[in-house]
Amino acid sequence: MSVEIQIQPITAENFAPYGDLIDCTGDSDMIINLGKCKRYHDRAQIDFGTGRAGLSLFNAEIRTLPYEFNLVERHPLGSQAFIPMSNDGFLVIVAPDDNGTPGTPIAFETQAGQAINFHKGTWHGVLTPLSGSGQFAVVDRIGDGNNLEEFLLSNPHIVVRDKT
């Protein structure tokens, strides 16, 4: 039996337990490049523990709603940032930790111009673009140790848009 979850609006506050919402909202922190560039400084808590930062490019398949999933994963040794290389939002699925296993999943959708950074150890769904190119720059930990833990949910979950 599948479980339906509705997409919630994403804000820095409601995403904070899982990671950082990265965007250019509010006033910039400084003006650089002879006044031609606004810098929004230090927008994510990048944590690589004993590893180093790695920059990879991902090319994910575009998905459609309703979206069914049963796999979540986490990275116990480092954070992971997803930065779309097109001006499109994407689906973000997270779950609180429940004594070492994922709790009830929550779905968010970013808006154009937003990226996210999952905190170290956050349960999350796979990369799920709903439009655009599916290309992302990903900043995550490179180093020794197993930084991937996958978990198959006992029931599939289906992500839908709010019906109101």
Rank of each mutant, 00 (worst) to 15 (best):
M1P: 14
S2I: 12
V3S: 04
I5F: 00
I5H: 07
P9G: 00
T11M: 04
T11Y: 00
L21S: 06
I22V: 12
S28P: 15
I32Y: 03
R39C: 04
H41G: 03
R43W: 06
A44C: 11
A44W: 00
Q45M: 14
Q45H: 15
I46H: 02
I46K: 05
F48C: 07
T50I: 11
G51V: 01
A53D: 07
G54M: 14
L55E: 02
L55Q: 04
S56P: 00
F58Y: 14
N59P: 01
N59F: 10
A60D: 09
R63G: 06
R63N: 08
R63Q: 08
L65T: 02
Y67N: 06
F69W: 06
L71E: 07
H75N: 01
L77R: 11
S79V: 08
S79R: 07
Q80G: 05
A81T: 14
N87R: 09
N87D: 14
N87Q: 08
D88I: 03
D88M: 03
G89N: 07
L91Q: 09
L91K: 05
I93W: 00
V94I: 07
D98F: 07
G100Y: 09
G100V: 07
T101N: 08
P102N: 08
T104L: 12
T104V: 13
P105M: 11
P105L: 14
P105V: 13
I106R: 12
I106W: 06
A107V: 04
A107N: 07
F108R: 01
F108C: 01
E109G: 02
Q111D: 13
Q111P: 06
A112G: 03
A112V: 03
Q114M: 13
N117A: 09
K120T: 15
G121W: 08
T122Q: 13
T122C: 12
W123M: 03
W123P: 01
H124V: 10
V126N: 10
L127Q: 08
T128Y: 06
P129H: 07
L130G: 01
S131F: 05
G132M: 08
S133K: 00
G134T: 07
G134N: 09
F136C: 02
F136G: 01
A137V: 13
A137F: 15
V138W: 05
V139L: 15
D140E: 14
D140S: 09
D144N: 13
N147Y: 12
L148R: 14
L148D: 14
L148Y: 11
S154T: 15
N155K: 15
H157N: 12
H157S: 09
I158K: 11
V159M: 13
V159K: 10
R161Q: 12
R161H: 10
D162W: 04
